Simulated scan of single mutants.
Amino acid sequence: MNDTQQFTQQTKALIDDLKSVCANYGLGNDGNEFKIITQVFLYKFLNDKFVYEIKQLDDSIAKAENWEDALKTLSADDYEMLIMQLSESTAVISPDHYISSLFAKQNEANFADIFDATLTDIARENSDIFSVLTNGGEKIVLFENLSKYVTDQRDDFCKAIVNKLTGFSFEHIFHEKFDFYATIFEYLIKDYNTNSGGKYAEYFTPYAVSKVMARCLVQGDVDNVTCYDPSAGSGSLLMNLAHEIGEDRCTIYSQDISQKSSGLLRLNLILNDLVHSIHNVIKGNTILEPYHKQAN
């Protein structure tokens, strides 16, 4: 088994573990399970991306036995300078909001409130870059209070979730390419993209179909391209187009009436290094209120 196959297997195992926790607390096949799984997965991804970027910027932190202790030794000015060097695709996460910090607090009273506050604080602190907009200009931030979806044993549920996040790090997958993330994304949403999902079911273009369409649409080398989809769904076609063109040579614009789809598109953009296009993702009715036509 090569490294990519191993990372794929580990990432899928994390998704399965999170779904198992939801099932154990009565949320299996529940519409709210989707929100918990995707937001917790994104929290894990952004946490590890922050750690990875910090280590790339400071060799002494990368080589330290404990990177958190090394980070704490920096002066306020040095820490601020380090944070300013982070790429725009990296969410800024404060020490109190690291997964390791949550893990250390899991025996404190009202842990569910601590867990929820961690997610909503991260969402608020990074809202300018990572929020999806509605037609009316409201921001849909990264995270919400997730423990509210559990009717009982909220603290235990949040502890179980956090314990699943500490098994391995995404730090080793950030060099992976588009095909890896496309596979992971499809696996992440596969249980929420079926006819059995009832009113929560929505349909997304399969990766293989989107890949063929993108290859047909993109002919030769192109640069400084705008890609627009008025009913983007989870963004499968847009992601394949961006990959075919080059993620650094295009900007994504989209609209979709579904808040669920808009959230998935944001996740897709984050996974595929297209964070610069998140502010162009609009949740709204394209037919009645075509946002990008009005905006331009």
Rank of each mutant, 00 (worst) to 15 (best):
I252P: 05
I252W: 02
L18I: 10
Y181Q: 00
Q259V: 14
G235W: 05
D191W: 03
Q259F: 12
E247H: 03
Y43F: 01
L27V: 07
D30I: 06
L86A: 00
T183V: 05
Q5R: 03
A76K: 15
V218R: 09
F204Q: 02
T90Q: 01
A112K: 05
S169Q: 07
A117S: 15
D69P: 00
Y187S: 06
K35Y: 08
Y25W: 03
R124S: 11
D152P: 06
I245N: 11
N224V: 10
S20V: 07
D273C: 06
A214N: 11
C22H: 06
K19S: 07
I61P: 05
G220W: 02
H243D: 15
Y253H: 00
M84V: 02
S236R: 05
K199P: 00
N24Y: 09
A23W: 12
A91D: 00
E65H: 09
G220Y: 11
A13L: 08
T194N: 05
Y98I: 00
F7S: 05
Q10C: 06
N296F: 15
L102Y: 09
E176N: 06
L14S: 03
N107Y: 02
Q39C: 10
D96R: 06
E138R: 02
Q6V: 04
E125D: 13
D223E: 15
Q106R: 12
E68R: 15
V132K: 03
E80D: 14
D179H: 10
S94M: 05
Y200K: 08
L241C: 09
K159F: 11
K44A: 14
D69T: 14
